[in-house]
């Protein structure tokens, strides 16, 4: 899906599908947002979506629906969402070409 705001790796798509299936209520997909918190200014939010909002940017890829908060679109263009299974922790990771710096903690970033 060329030109989509974000792309999703196979691993991330598989994990999102699993999580959506195991959630105990229906979801329309997942929602990705950005908020102005954290030591480097911005941080990602990643949540289940109960409903679509009017201005959400919608990305559908590999059987996964990702709703993107309209305010976040400009910070996320070209980002790849990946899932990693490391020795100590598992979770999602955003590979964002707009990030110019990242807080040492990895929880927030700036563009």
């Amino acid at each position: 899906m060329a030109g989509a705001v974000i792309s999703i790796s196979d691993a991330a798509a598989e994990r999102v599908r699993e999580l959506l299936a195991s959630r105990d209520k229906p979801s329309v997909g997942i929602r990705v947002g950005v908020r102005t918190r954290g030591c480097s200014g911005l941080s990602y939010t990643l949540e289940f979506a109960d409903a679509r909002n009017q201005f959400d940017e919608i990305v559908e890829e590999k059987g996964v629906t990702v709703l993107i908060d309209p305010k976040a679109v400009m910070f996320l263009l070209g980002t790849e969402m990946d899932f990693v299974d490391e020795k100590l922790q598992t979770g999602f990771k955003f590979i964002n070409p707009n990030e110019k710096g990242r807080c040492g903690c990895g929880e927030s970033f700036r563009v």
Partner: peptide, 11 residues
């Protein structure tokens, strides 16, 4: 770095 998890809306 710390990885992200999917949370309930607002959580």
């Amino acid at each position: 770095m710390s990885l992200l998890q999917i949370h309930e809306p607002g959580a």
